[in-house]
């Protein structure tokens, strides 16, 4: 029995298909994410990364297939499936007329163990504590992104799903975010991260999945990939070129 088989599956995607009217979307995606994984979902623009993440978080219904998070079906038991999940999908949004603190307090109310002290804690963790009374309508893209990440990790989730989490962040912010992800991953938090920033995925993720034209091309560990390729970028280009030839 391999190591992967004994480790608990945290996210299970089974034959997930969602095709939009324009023909784009995802096609028959099956994927298992295990506890403690920092999974990098790599793919060019329009490959289907966001669609897959929207289906995973119940924002879109699939045409076919199923998603289970911590054993609960997203379609059938949404509240249970999302109870231990934090996510940021597509863009980091917040209510512009509520302060940063009030925004997080809105989400905190859904989790029994999350109080105002925890809100302050995540604001501190993301470097947003000094802006806690300010409204996001005056925030820069990077500040909104930090607030979105604070909202995603607020409930001390076991699973964090992040769509392009480094968008809009400066170098300092990117390093802080990488450290934040690594710190939480050490405490057994499972991450599913989509990004087009290959270098950052290489530095942050321990497993990689490549998606192209709505289909999964390959899934492998970062260590294994780097044994066979000089860099993750080389691996990615090779996988995509192979797919193009097919």
């Amino acid at each position: 029995m391999s190591k992967e088989q004994v480790i608990e599956k945290v996210i299970e995607l089974e034959h997930l298909t969602k095709v939009y009217k324009n023909g784009r979307g995802i096609d028959d995606i099956s994927l298992d994410i295990y506890r403690g994984d920092v999974f990098g979902f790599l793919g060019p623009n329009g490959a289907g990364k966001t669609t897959a993440m929207k289906v995973m978080t119940g924002l879109i219904r699939p045409d076919r297939g199923e998603v289970r998070i911590l054993g609960h079906s997203v379609a059938e038991e949404y509240e249970k499936a999302m109870a231990k999940v934090g996510c940021m999908i597509e863009t980091a949004e917040s209510y512009p007329y509520l302060s940063a603190f009030e925004n997080l307090r809105q989400f905190a109310r859904y989790y029994p163990g999350v109080d105002e002290k925890r809100v302050d804690e995540v604001l501190e963790l993301t470097g947003m504590l000094k802006y806690k009374r300010e409204k996001p309508k005056r925030f820069s893209l990077g500040m909104k992104q930090r607030l979105g990440l604070a909202a995603a990790v607020l409930s001390r989730p076991e699973v964090v799903i992040l769509d392009e989490p480094l968008n809009g962040l400066d170098v300092e912010g990117m390093i802080a975010m990488r450290n934040l992800i690594k710190g939480l991953a050490e405490r057994e938090t499972t991450f599913f991260i989509s990004s087009h920033l290959i270098h950052d995925v290489e530095l942050t993720c321990n497993r990689i999945g490549v998606i192209y034209n709505g289909r999964i091309l390959d899934v492998d560990s970062t260590a294994n990939i780097l044994k066979n390729y000089a860099s993750l970028e080389n691996y990615f280009v090779s996988e995509v070129e192979q797919s193009g030839r097919i």
Binding site: L59, M82, I89, E93, F107, Y110, A151
Partner: peptide
Amino acid sequence: AQNTLRITLTRPVSR
């Protein structure tokens, strides 16, 4: 329109 519905609906609460 502001995409803020998304941040409510991805919490553990049914539609």
